[in-house]
Design a protein around this nucleic acid. Sequence first.
DNA 1: CCAATTGCAGATAAATTTTATCCATGATAG
DNA 2: CTATCATGGATAAAATTTATCTGCAATTGG
Lengths: 166, 166
Amino acid sequence: MKISSTIEWAIHCCSLLAGLPPEVNLTGKDLAEYHGVPHPYLAKALQTLSSDGILMTVSGPRGGYKLAKKPSKVSLLDIVLSIEGSDSCFDCDEIRQKGPGALERSASYKKPCLIASAMWKAEKVWRDELDKVKLSDLLEKVKTEVDPRQLKKGADWIAQRTQSKK
Amino acid sequence: MKISSTIEWAIHCCSLLAGLPPEVNLTGKDLAEYHGVPHPYLAKALQTLSSDGILMTVSGPRGGYKLAKKPSKVSLLDIVLSIEGSDSCFDCDEIRQKGPGALERSASYKKPCLIASAMWKAEKVWRDELDKVKLSDLLEKVKTEVDPRQLKKGADWIAQRTQSKK
DNA sequence: CCAATTGCAGATAAATTTTATCCATGATAG
DNA sequence: CTATCATGGATAAAATTTATCTGCAATTGG
C-alpha cells in the first residue's frame, strides 16, 4: 500500500512549474536536477503527465515542460491518478463467491461485497480530499510558510538556467 | 498503490469469525478452504492478526482461531494496519532539501513539506473512514443484505466442519 | 537547409516487494 | 503418546517498481 516516490516527484515538479511565469518552461533534465532525482526515470513521469494534459511540452531547443492548465485547475488527485492510473487501490476478488459457502449462480450476487464497498468508500474520501487541494493552494501556502531565502535560491537557479540558454 | 489481497482475505476471515458463537473456532485450513485461498500464505496473515491481538488462537487438536475481541471493538482499520503495518503509505523523501534550491542547514526546514502534509491529511481521512466501520456493522448489514440461502450454506459447512472433529 | 536540443516510445534490466511454500518446533486434547 | 494445530524461520517464485538506454520525431536558431 505504498505510494510510489514517482508521485512525490511529479507533484513537486508540477508545483514548481505552477509557480513560474507562463512563458517559462523547464527541461526534464532541469527538473530532475532541481529535485535531485534520476533524469531518465523522471522523464517517464513527465511524459505521462503531459499525455494526460496536465503538462504541456515544447519540443526543440529551449523547449521543455510547462503547466498545461491554470494552477487552480490542477488538483493533487489529478497528478496521482495520472501517474498511478485511475484503478481502485482495492481489488475485490469476489472471494465470497469462491468457497463452500458460495452459491452456484453468480447472478445471485447483485449487490457489491460489503467489504469491498467499505474499502471503496474509504478510497473515495481519500480521493475527494486530494481533489480539494489544487496547485494554487500549495502556491498560496508556499508564500507564507516557506523560508524566503529558499524561495530566492530556487528562483535564482531557475533564472540562471533559463537565461544561459538564450 | 495497490492494497494487497491478503487484506481482503484477512477481513473476510475476521468477519466470518465475528459471526460465530464465542466457543467455536476454525482452523487456518478451514478458513483457507472456506474462502478458496492458499492455506500456508493465509496462515501468515492469521498469525499476524493473532499477534496483534485481533484474533485468539487455540492450539492443539480442535484448536484454531477465534475473534479476540467483541466485533464492535474491531474496525477495518485495525485489520488493515495489522497486516500492512502502520507506516504511512506516503513517504516524504524531503526532496525539497536536495536540489539546488535547498538551503544548507536542514534545521531551516521546521514545518513539514506542504506536499507531504496534504498527502498525510488524505491518508488520515481514509484511515478515519475505515476506523468507523466495525465488524459488528458488517454483521448487521449481512443480516439484511445477503441472500439467506448463502448464509445457510456457509453455516452448514461450518457446522459440519466443527461437528465432524468431535 | 543544417545542426543541436529536446521530448517520445519502446525495449531492457536491476532492485524490491508481494505472494507463496516448506519445515522443525511447541502446545494440547483425547 | 499420538495426532492435530499454531508458530517462527528460511526459502523461493512471481510481480511490480525503479531505472536506464536507444533510436526517432519535432523544433529552433543559425
